[in-house]
Design a protein around this nucleic acid. Structure first.
Length: 190
DNA sequence: ATGGGGATCGTCT
DNA sequence: GACGATCCCCATC
């Protein structure tokens, strides 16, 4: 695949979560600040969650918390966990199928100063190397649950360089369906 | 370098 | 009432 031939962000999130999670590695995710500047970087780690997957919030059907995952692709699903952490997902297609891609890590390329301020005292290598750290660095909270990507303050863009090599492994922190290799990690990435 | 446990509260049974 | 799609600190090697 040559530069310029990437699927658009909308084409990516309209697919099922597993396909989208793999493809999103190398895409770029940002929050737009009030002054128009971007904070974020290259997506280097994702996980897929589907409705027939016991590890997913949607496995037991629609509830108040997970309703955004059933409300159409291209939105942000943000949930609160362990009494203190936020985690962010991109809802994928098919619409209303209860699927999403957890954003687990970025390689920062914009707004480092903002991320350092939100992750005070942490070395640069630990600014956005986990799902809750990512939300902390970009100040994503429950207020952002349901936000439409590329229509408001959240920006998803195609890769700049060559597509990365991607490795699939077991997902982190789950008890059920550990045999599914639905965690995707960038090995080499431009 | 690696591993165990505490923090902390919304969500669902 | 139990447990989590986690992180951080501290102990130990």
């Amino acid at each position: 695949m040559s530069p310029g031939s990437y699927d658009t962000p909308m084409e990516v999130w309209n697919q099922d979560a597993v396909t989208a999670a793999r493809q999103l590695i190398g895409y770029r995710f940002y929050v737009k600040l009030g002054d128009g500047s971007l904070v974020g970087g290259v997506i280097t780690e994702t996980e897929a969650y589907t409705a027939d997957d016991a590890a997913s919030h949607t496995f037991h059907g629609e509830t108040a918390r997970n309703s955004v995952m059933f409300s159409g692709a291209g939105k942000l699903y943000v949930y609160f966990t362990y009494g203190m952490h936020w985690c962010a997902n991109i809802v994928t297609g098919p619409d209303r199928s209860g699927q999403a891609v957890l954003l687990r890590a970025l390689r920062p390329d914009s707004g480092i100063t903002y991320m350092r301020a939100n992750r005070k005292g942490r070395p640069d290598a630990e600014l956005v190397d986990g799902p809750a750290k990512l939300c902390q660095a970009l100040r994503i909270t429950g207020d952002d649950n349901g936000a439409e990507i590329n229509e408001g303050r959240f920006v998803l863009r195609t890769p700049l360089g060559r597509p990365p090599t991607v490795k699939a492994t077991t997902r982190i922190g789950i008890r059920h369906d550990q045999q599914r290799l639905w965690r995707f990690i960038a090995i080499s990435c431009d």
